[in-house]
């Protein structure tokens, strides 16, 4: 991290302030509205990459294995994430199926893939083409990835169904649980400044 002081504006109240970027770990908050302006973390890049890759593996496991099994007398059903979406499609609930698909599969997956696309080349001191655009897309996706809400939905469903049948927790239930924490860790270890600083350097060199 290069030590420098820059002029910046708070994105939530537009306050203009001089910020010293040369600290290793911590956050800088806006003195007027308390929005987080800068967030530095030691080994931010390595942590972000490690969490992103762990996240992708957990995501794959969570989608391949059943979340919960439901057993009633001699009949049993199992559900993987996609089968819920499929069932909604079968019932002609296209909008609902789309909403569930985007918020629990498409958005989290794209989020992880785009993070890897942006941060992996940084590790090798390079920058991928369209990094700025891809990273902007990543930030826009964030609110639509709702894994932690889905996890709460699983827990509520289990409590509702336990009353009428036997519920068997599946592998994906555990991997989901871990994935929530990994996604949260990815967000908290990530430092967007790494991307912008690198981008600035490449611009200067090419000009």
């Amino acid at each position: 991290m290069t030590g420098f002081v820059s002029l910046m504006a708070c994105h939530e109240c537009d306050l203009l302030l001089r910020v010293d970027h040369s600290f290793e770990e911590g956050v800088v908050k806006c003195p007027r509205c308390a929005a987080v302006l800068l967030k530095h973390k030691r080994h931010s890049l390595d942590l972000t990459l490690a969490y992103t890759m762990a996240g992708l593996i957990l995501f794959a496991i969570s989608n391949v294995f059943p979340i919960i099994g439901f057993q009633f007398e001699r009949q049993s059903t199992e559900t993987i994430l996609l089968s819920g979406v499929q069932e909604l499609l079968d019932q002609n609930m296209r909008l609902l199926a789309g909403l569930v698909f985007i918020t629990t599969i498409l958005a989290p997956f794209t989020l992880l893939v785009t993070l890897l696309y942006v941060f992996l080349p940084l590790k090798f001191n390079r920058i991928a083409p369209y990094t700025a655009e891809v990273f902007r897309f990543t930030s826009a996706l964030r609110p639509w990835s709702m894994m932690e809400v889905f996890m709460l939905g699983i827990l509520v469903s289990v409590v509702k169904l336990v009353a009428i049948a036997t519920i068997i927790p599946g592998v994906a239930l555990w991997s989901f649980g871990i994935l929530i924490f990994v996604l949260a860790a990815t967000t908290s270890s990530l430092d967007p400044d790494l991307v912008w600083e690198k981008l600035e350097l490449t611009h200067e060199r090419s000009n």
Binding site: I68, E87, G153, S157, K160
Partner: peptide
């Protein structure tokens, strides 16, 4: 919404 999705898929 997620509870409905899971119930629909399971029951």
């Amino acid at each position: 919404i997620y509870v409905v999705t899971l119930m629909v898929a399971l029951v």
